Amino acid sequence: MYLGAHLSISKGFEAAVREALSIGATTFQFFTRNPRGGAARALDPEDIARSIQLRVEHGFGPLVAHAPYTINLAAPKEETWSFAKTTLAADIVRMATAQIPYIVVHPGSHVGQGIAAGIDRITQALNEVLRPDQGVTVLLEGMSGAGTEVGGRFEELRAIIDGLQTPEKVGVCLDSCHLFGAGYDVKSDFADVLATFDRIVGIDRLKAMHINDSQQPLASHKDRHALLGQGLIGSEAMAALLNHAALEGLPLNLETPGEIDDYRREIAWMRSTRNQ
């Protein structure tokens, strides 16, 4: 498995790789552009090449891009929906240029239209955006099920994938905090949660995970991340999660609410829990 955290690429990919190395990481996640909107940062081919060389030298795993929160593939309003499709399509092309294999996207919010309508809207959007020859896999993020979010249940992720014309270009990114909030008991039995995911979605679809403790209780339907061991999932359960064989070889990134020194400490702790 490859351990990392959510970092900034505001100073370029090479600088982000060096920051990752400084905290003991062998992968990292980053936003494709400002998470609340705005123009995308221009890519520098020389910076990309230097970052790839560094990653190869230090045994990095795949990096993971994250689409901005302003994307809503389930939006009922045409203007919002069109923006989501245009932005995601552009970011897929940009990440292919940067040789980033994965881009995580929140499935979207149906804004009161209902889960079925939201799922239909998401599949329509992805069928317009995805191309068989694209070099990037879109990862639908499992959500906590807050409000009108789509993706809080494994069945919803499955329904989206079942409606795709190019399902091979879509995977899933799970989040330990979101799972807990959605009612999947990762604290008591992560293995059972993954078995359920495998039965409904397919374990081969799991390409990455976000590793976070939770400030809120099981089935709260709230997305409130906590530092590892300082939330309601707890250190023991997080250690069991990290040692599950299905996560071997995947990029696992922290989105915990601390600073860079917290990331360094948490990555060291995650590595220390392996196979104990």
Rank of each mutant, 00 (worst) to 15 (best):
R153Y: 06
T137G: 01
L232A: 01
E156D: 02
K207F: 11
D175L: 01
I161S: 01
C177P: 01
A182G: 03
E259K: 14
T70W: 10
P62K: 13
R94T: 09
G135S: 06
L126R: 03
Q276P: 15
L88M: 04
H225Q: 06
V56S: 13
L227S: 14
T196A: 00
I161E: 01
A195W: 06
H58V: 09
S272K: 13
P62D: 10
A25Y: 04
Q165H: 13
D47T: 03
T196G: 00
A74G: 12
E141L: 05
R271P: 06
L247C: 05
D133G: 03
P76R: 13
K85M: 11
P76W: 12
F154W: 00
G145N: 05
A89S: 15
P101T: 02
Y184M: 02
Y2R: 05
P217G: 07
L54Q: 09
C177D: 01
T137M: 14
T87G: 09
M238L: 15
Y263N: 14
P62H: 12
N243L: 02
E14R: 15
D91Y: 05
E236I: 13
W81F: 15
F13V: 07
G38S: 03
V170G: 00
E57C: 05
H244M: 07
S51Q: 12
R205A: 04
H221Y: 10
F154R: 00
F83G: 03
G38T: 05
A159V: 01
M209V: 15
L7S: 06
E236T: 15
Q230A: 14
L164V: 04
R36L: 11
S109F: 13
G183D: 04
A240Y: 10
W269I: 09
W81Q: 14
S8F: 11
N253W: 02
G151I: 02
D47V: 03
E149F: 00
A75H: 14
T273V: 13
G12Q: 09
G231T: 07
G112I: 02
A246I: 00
Y69K: 11
N243W: 05
E46C: 09
S272I: 09
